[in-house]
Design a protein around this nucleic acid. Sequence first.
RNA 1: GGGCCUAUAGCUCAGUUUCGGUCAGAGCGCACGCCUGAUAAGCGUGAGGUCGUUGGUUCAAUUCCAACUAGGCCCA
Length: 927
Amino acid sequence: MAIDYKATLNLPQTKFPMKANLGRMEPEILRRWAEMDLYAQLRAQNQGRPRYILHDGPPYANGHIHVGHALNKILKDIIIKSRQMSGFDCPYVPGWDCHGLPIEHEVDKQTKAKGLQLARPEIRQRCREYALRFVDIQRQEFIRLGVMGDWQHPYLTMTNDYVAGIIREYGRIALSGAVYRSKKPIYWCNTCHTALAEAEVEYYDHETPSIFVKFALLSDLSADYPELAGRPISLVIWTTTPWTLPANLAIALNPQFDYAAFQVEEEILILAVDLAEPVLQSLGLTGVEQARIPATRLEGLVCQHPWIDRQSRVILADYVTLEAGTGLVHIAPGHGQEDFDSGRRYGLETYSPVDDDGRFLPDVAEFAGMQVWEANPHIIELLQKRGALLGVEKISHSYPHCWRCKQPVIFRATEQWFISMDHNDLRGQALKAIDQVTWVPRWGRERIHGMVENRPDWCISRQRAWGVPIIAFHCQNCGQILLNQEIIDNIIDLVGREGADAWFKREAADLLPAGSRCPQCGGTEFHKESDILDVWFDSGVSFAAVLETNPGLRFPADLYLEGSDQHRGWFHSALLTAVATRGQAPYRGVLTHGFAVDGEGKKMAKSLGNVIAPQDVIQRFGAEILRLWVAAEDYRDDVRLSDPILKQLTEAYRRIRNTARFLLGNLYDFDPGRDLVPAAAREELDRLALSWLAQLIGRVREAYDRFEFHRAYHRLHQFCAVELSALYLDILKDRLYVSRADSPARRSAQSTLYDLLTSLIRLMAPILSFTAEEIWGYLPGSGREASVHLAAFPEPPPGYPDEVLLSKWEILLKVRGEIYRALEEARRVKLIGNSLEARVTLRATGSLYDQLQTHIPELLTLTMVSELEVRPEALSGLESKEIPGLSMKVEKALGQKCERCWYYSRTTGEDPDHPTLCARCRQVLEV
RNA sequence: GGGCCUAUAGCUCAGUUUCGGUCAGAGCGCACGCCUGAUAAGCGUGAGGUCGUUGGUUCAAUUCCAACUAGGCCCA
């Protein structure tokens, strides 16, 4: 009976599944981490190590997470895990941003649908429940991604402690004198009597008058333009809101445009040159250009208001366009954002003579008490009477309306609270602080610098319920603001115990320390401020409310990491509040990532139908693939996500997984405690592999250190595909399978596989956290950490990489490449199939001959051919393109194929008892 | 309209931190083939790019400058 020689081979065996089944495996691993409380174990194990603080920017507690959230949190997770494995203690406390309009808006919608009218504390209670619900949802979704952190103790910007922290920081800034009140135009609904945020206005078409109005020039231009002398000169403006004319304080021109004086009948009209013709034509007028006047010449001149005894200044503004109108813009600083900005620049009053009902105040004598919309025709009539009206028509255009009552809204200046950018030179200090920070990518510095340099004072007040109250009291008697440290401390104490609701529920007298008196008039009656803080202030001061209060954390953080939109958002508000209160930035480094876009680089939008949800990716591919995506893409630019990309990543994942599986399969009988061969005692090829491994470790760790995860991914993947699968592992099979199981040669190989595997999974752990953990459980041997995440990154074996070995084998590998080409040619002509069927003859002369001649065993190993010889004389065969002077000839191997090792050998058949075995196999089997 | 940024093979990335001259590369995918002792695996060979477009600087530009186009974020 024939002997089953295959049974005498050491073929790979492992229970580690080839198919990942991530959908089942990941939740199992998550359960394991939860049961062992991995996060707590890490804290205990890493105590005393240098800390690395990545401070989590709080996502908004509304809705399910989208891929942008996944990108952000996985990046943070990769950093936390890789820094941890590099020897740092990396506590990670996630947070949520809980206050603000979107949640209040949602709650409003729900209560409106039910026809409810709720008081502030009730609204707040519903908002709180709403936020909490989404905190729980998002928490589960983040955990599902494999993100490790203190999920049991996150920070929420609505908890009593946090709110007390906000008020403490607000108090510091306010009491330093940086906070002031001033008027600012905001959206205002006349019917709802409420301020509206940008997100609360909806745009519909609305019909308004469109009028051209003359403003008579009071200044004299005749010195420079004698041709204009003696005739009345007017500037012509265009507006669709006649009711804002009573608040007109200026006329704006664009310094870039050409303006000219046109003679129209007996008067002179000034218009932008490019618009003069269409404007005059539509007014049924003809004009003759008399003179060009640069905008800069007109700046500072004064005009007469059409009917009010007031002058209107000519100013410059680069937002003036030629899209519509006359190129001259009517400016009412109390009724428009741009008007307001220009007003501040030119020192104009933020004049807004309109009350909460949208009715004119007595200031506007002609229209006092009249609704602004009603006043429009009367104003036009008055203009007509005064001879200031050049034309009127009706136009329909997109105009903001109240989301609640659907009525058109107005822009109206109201009292708001601001943080001054100039007080204590906050702007200058912030700009200096920016330069103390490491920005990744580097252009982040330019971006935030430009924003801080140009931003207006920070308007921190909102007329809303769901937020942190602005702490201030108004004297009933004289209107003076009352605020001092004692009051602040009192409120901090109260809010710490009862939450911010206390502010909304209690009367001013309850909130103030006993005996509080107005510092100005001595009054004792006060009412409390009703505005709340901008939510950017809430999250901005997290450095104080979280970093400084959590004993595991510290100020400043080592890193803030968010999308590049946060240069305007969190990085910005955190910078300003920290500089104002601490004199420095709250972070040493800031890293930004781009946005998730579709396969074409377009933004994901419901309207485009190209949104990919992380929940879908997890279900179809696995969270691990999503993690791989985050790592593989260069996040400094926008990151593309599409099905083909995910499929490609799945392929890459399989390659890595199968490589690990093969390594495991060949370690089934290996006990590192018993069988590990010291590096120096291993075979040369194994030491070459160790050199490659050493290079890999160096490069991957460097990539992690530099936050270049896509490099880490590419290196790991390529290492598995090229160095291992195609090269080292392929040629090692013979030694692993054929040698005696406990032979030094095989143990040398296995020791190297063991080193490779234990290194690889630790290097991949920050990215492929689930799979690394799964493999960790299959490793032979004992005495290692309970989780791969408790382990450290591998170090290169001492003395490796071995440069001498690397350069020696580099040449041999080049020869191997050439031989492969010759073998492929032989396959093409059906001479051989498997390389073991080949006998290769190389022709070389001189030093190349010597080199090849002395390395025949290595070349045999590398090429997996049965026979190889080197000869100096010419031969017919393939000539190498890469290596001059080398020719190769491939023939059918001589001898018989050994049934066991498949090598062709002339020794096969020598032993009649084992006629199908070669000498080597007979020796292994000791027969 | 303004600020900042991006644009290399079908895909993901390299192209040596600031500095122009063997830098046009890798892996994946694809095509063809081999193996069947990593097998819903493994191996080999091969074909793919006018380095977004157009100008400019230079002896020389994917690499510097400008404009444009497309895309992104933030403002307006």
